[in-house]
Design a protein around this nucleic acid. Structure first.
Lengths: 230, 230, 230, 230
DNA sequence: CATGAATGAGGATTCATTCAT
DNA sequence: TATGAATGAATCCTCATTCAT
């Protein structure tokens, strides 16, 4: 079984075993990248396993050796992409000490780093759908939930750091979900539909500003009337 | 061809022709509803034409008599759903004279009327994807663009009615897209993933409040400097 | 049953019955012509009954009222064409009193009259095939047999008129079949494949000359030894 | 892709690769033969892919692995048959040094070798047609054109060898086409319609004699009445 | 007689997956 | 490990034919 956890048996390993390990990982990598491009450009259903194998310059059998099935390929891919996305956003947020500024920077990074440098990955994460009740959909949910949870934590961190509190009547979770929605659709709209990658910086700034405006509204500001939405 | 425009020959029609016309529409309706349920529950790819025909209690041939092919079925369905959604939102907005209040009400209607009463339609509009470069994807884009455009117009109407102006540095279009994103993902998250239809009223209120907060932030407030980010 | 022999009941008929009779025949004619064009241009299998009905400006049901089924359509068509072809050839042959000259003239008429004026009919007679063991194939055989038989009779007539006799060792039937083959393939080659209708006169002359040469070789020439081939 | 040109890598091949190659060819052969029988007996349209696969004792998928589609099956088959036919005729003709005798022998071989030993192939070549403007029809044309061209060359060779010339007023091409027509229809008539395979030798002799008579008529014969060739 | 909506068996083709080598 | 030929269930779609109106 190739799914053995890497690192478990790393201490006692012959050289050739190490090389094998390395080659295995390289092979997995190659296949994953080939599939990624195909899925992004053709869509999950249109991309056939043989096509993927060809693109990765391996045999179909090899693909099935490293991946349980086509779904598994997509799931592992989405996990990677989810991890990548969270790294990018998390790094930026933490680099600014969990402030509102950091929160905004993370938003900018979403557009300027993730969308611009990993458009195929964005396409897969935001477009691919295989049909309800599939493992894939569950996985998508997990990834989005993690992201949402990250955003939620960030919101809480910011509010703590700012020494302000959320107005009790709002569900921070809904806000987090909303923010994810903004990121997702703006990326989809301008990257996948209009292919305006070069404008993403500006577009991202506007979107982030909109979010920041909505968010700052949510904090109690003791000495002052809220800008009353009504 | 059953696709003849209705109304063309409506004045002079024999009774039997009228009945036929009615029956034809009823049949189309039946098939569309059956397909809707199947697409929403099984997904586009998993739902077979025979299954659809069975559910509609007609033969496969009958489905193909009224619809060019499976894609056509989905496209016509999406068009209907798009129209339905825009009607619901537009009616609410106009009923309140294009005010911010109307804008919010439209938002509430999205969750309380559209999502709650037409969850299958929401599933189809927000989940179904067939793969890039398909007619379906184009159609989806058109529908979303129309909705986005509606939101954009609404924003402009509100800003005019409030005698305030957008802060120049924001792209209203990006805001509109963002709002669509919020609606979409909140619906997706709470309706399709968590199936919390009964909580949608509250959830919707929070989401709309968040939007309203963000939006009111966008209007120039004469006596005060913008919080200029950049 | 619309297949009643025409003329049977012609003596006692009301005027309206007569008109009906006429209209029926006109209708049959229209459908047959429409089908002819379609079969010639699209082929038997590609031409659908609905297409035929549309082209004839009647309903599918009407086609099925006048013709048992698609095969019947083709068979009746082929019968007509066979009759037409035999008329053209026979008329020419008889007009010259059954001489070799008449035989040649008939050959010329095949190319210059039949092929040139009825190319669609030629296409149907020579190209259409539906698959073995069909009624159609049997019908084709009958028609070709009739034509072959005509040619055979013509050969005999000529030989009688010329007061010469066939060399005993030749089967006149094989010659007749051969002649049919020449007509068929030359027409196919130059009309259906190369569409050189305008050259058919010359081409036909060559083919006929070839046939005449072969044929005149077959007759015993009393004062002389046969040129024994082998 | 199994269509790799044979011979490319024939020098350095492992044993197993060689065996694979052999098995592949055997498999293609098996499928082709099964399809041939089915096409000849049932006709192209009536023979289903599953039926073919069953007859070849492989799965449908295997058929599609070796052949692009049903048309491809027929085309490759026709190519083979065309090649076979031309080999048989050409061999005979060349074996007699391009004389009129060789020409006749080739004719006899057509009936006695090709028609008698390969009746199914004859059925396919002469009967199967799928409808105008198809790849198949184009292929048929190519094959017939090649055969016609062979006949034409043979005629020219004979006339050169006999030191006689064609009478200028005849188009040798039309003669060649005519000869093809004779072969085709005589075979069709007596083999496919009347199934008189056992009489084909005699029938063939008559047909060839008829052709030879027509042909010898075409040569200029300077000093002499008799046409005695040889 | 005419209509045209409805039928449904039948057919070609695809493709994820397996397994002998 | 790697290969790639083989599998066969699944699926979309066509179209000759029927029949209620």
């Amino acid at each position: 079984m190739p799914e053995k956890k890497p690192g478990d048996d790393s201490k006692k390993m012959t050289k050739s075993a190490l090389r094998r390990q390395r080659e295995r990982e390289k092979r997995v990598e190659t296949i994953l990248r080939a599939a990624e491009t195909l899925f992004a450009n053709e869509g999950f259903h249109k991309a056939g396993m043989e096509q993927i194998a060809d693109a990765a310059e391996v045999s179909v059998g090899a693909v099935y050796f490293y991946f349980r099935n086509k779904e598994d390929l997509l799931i592992r891919m989405m996990d990677e992409i989810g991890y990548l996305l969270r790294s990018i956003l998390g790094r930026e947020f933490k680099a600014h000490g969990g402030t509102l500024e950091g929160f905004k920077r993370a938003g900018h990074a979403f557009f300027e780093v993730f969308c611009v440098n990993y458009p195929e990955q964005a396409a897969i994460l935001f477009r691919e759908s295989v049909g309800k009740s599939d493992l894939v959909e569950q996985r998508r949910k997990v990834i989005f939930d993690q992201c949402t949870s990250d955003v939620l934590q960030a919101l809480n961190t910011v509010s703590r750091n700012q020494v302000v509190a959320f107005k009790g009547r709002f569900s921070a979770e809904v806000i987090a979900v909303s923010i994810m929605g903004i990121y997702e659709r703006v990326a989809y709209h301008y990257l996948l539909w209009q292919d305006r990658a070069e404008d993403l910086t500006d577009i991202g700034r506007d979107a982030v500003a909109f979010i920041a405006g909505g968010v700052s509204n949510l904090f109690e500001e003791p000495d002052q009337e809220g800008r009353g939405e009504k």
